[in-house]
Amino acid sequence: MTEILFAAILTDNLALSFFLGICTFLAVSQRLSTALGLGIAVIVVQGVTVPVNALIHAVLLAPGALHWIGLPEIDLSFLRIIVFIGVIAAMVQLMELLLDRFVPALHRALGVFLPLITVNCAILGGSLFMVERRYDPLEAVVWGIGSGIGWALAIIAFAAIRERLRYADMPEGLRGLGGAFIVTGLMSLGFSGFGGLAQ
């Protein structure tokens, strides 16, 4: 269990090892407070969708999963992308309702990037990795929350660095996105160092 949590947060970090969800990662990392809000939103969405998807996969989609209604030969696992996306979309909409109701300032700050979590590849990637690696439902919970924390950690650290970087005397052409890409690369290099710890 701890290995999965460790891998989810550090060595297999979705943002910095797999470069998933990079569009949002780059776009919503201008301010630390907004990045923190988005990070928490991703942890929640990921922490709910991965276990729910794991359950749906185990009970309905996996080969032989339907034996409980007497259809053991049916394999619906080809439906997993559309099903997973559906669950994610519903979760994000729920998240939007919740934020609009209770944290309206964050809802406004995230703007269009909140609904865009629906098609954030980090979120779908989390669910697909879960299937690929054959996690059982309990492991899926750990992986879901862990990978959410990992992505949040990456964007929060990145936003903090970018806030600092605004005062740095960078060459004209590197200001803004250019510098952001370099920082992402360096952070990714740093995170790959955790690979050695895992051995």
């Binding site: 749906i56 309905l60 339907l66 259809l71 049916i74 394999d75 619906l76 439906l79 559309i82 099903v83 559906g86 669950v87 979309a89 519903a90 909409q93 729920l94 309702l97 919740l98 609009d100 109701r101």
Partner: peptide
């Protein structure tokens, strides 16, 4: 297989929409 897939998808979408509608009503 096709029938099971269709039934599954329709049920899932209906279930998710119902959950959202209830959440919206409350929020």
């Amino acid at each position: 297989g096709v029938l099971a897939g269709v039934v599954l998808l329709v049920t899932l979408v209906l279930a998710l929409s119902t959950a959202l509608l209830i959440a919206r009503r409350r929020l």
